[in-house]
């Protein structure tokens, strides 16, 4: 019981308090670049979620049961990026072959996930801070749900920005960053929620 509670608390804290985008700054490029279509933001978020979970599941045993016993933990980054890139290709291949409709919504985002810092960031944090398996899973789950929530909220907010008269220099990315700053302030309110 205690384990379940701490698992859920860890998920919440990785999702809201230590949000990927707004306080850990992973995946800003895709966060800014995905634009103001809520639907495409949601697809992007789902794709990232899936890859993060898969990467966590593969990389955890690879690090703790292969790299560490062999005495070569310094190869972690190289191994992780290869695993993540292969995973993305394999998932992409699977989608391409089986489901054209899914490919239509996710297809353009798949190559971008390899270079999304969120995936490598989660996996690297897991091994850098020596998290146990359950906390690693919670990190993966919380991070990806947090990414999904924030990227969808952000797309909604930018949709509303469309009709407003913004100074010419602020158009595009600068105003998006200011919006992100306001969101980050709102998310600061979650601080201290989980002791």
């Amino acid at each position: 019981m205690e384990m379940i509670v701490s698992f859920i608390l860890a998920i919440v804290s990785y999702m809201l308090i230590d949000n990927v985008v707004l306080s850990r700054f992973y995946g800003i490029c895709s966060f800014i670049g995905v634009g103001n279509k809520v639907k495409s933001a949601f697809s992007m978020g789902l794709a990232v979620t899936f890859v993060i979970m898969m990467a966590t599941l593969v990389c955890y045993p690879l690090y703790f049961y292969v790299l560490v016993p062999a005495g070569i933990p310094f190869l972690d980054t190289l191994v992780y990026i290869l695993v993540i890139a292969s995973l993305v290709q394999i998932v992409g291949l699977f989608i391409k072959k089986t489901s054209p409709s899914l490919y239509k919504t996710l297809g353009i985002y798949l190559p971008l996930i390899t270079t999304n810092c969120a995936v490598l960031g989660v996996v690297q944090t897991n091994s850098d801070s020596q998290l146990d398996f359950l906390t690693s899973l919670a990190n993966g789950l919380g991070t990806s749900i947090g990414f999904l929530v924030v990227i969808v909220l952000f797309a909604c907010m930018r949709e509303r920005l469309n009709g407003y008269n913004i100074p010419k220099a602020m158009k595009g990315v600068p105003i998006a960053l200011i919006v992100a700053a306001l969101m980050a302030m709102a998310f600061m309110g979650f601080g201290g929620m989980v002791g």
Binding site: G92, L93, K96, P100, G107, I108
Partner: peptide, 19 residues
């Protein structure tokens, strides 16, 4: 996997999806 992915033709209607 990269080469296979690149060589697999995109499903119908999605040929132009690139970023």
């Amino acid at each position: 996997s990269f080469v296979i992915y690149m060589r697999t033709p995109a499903p119908k209607g999605c040929e132009k999806l690139k970023i």
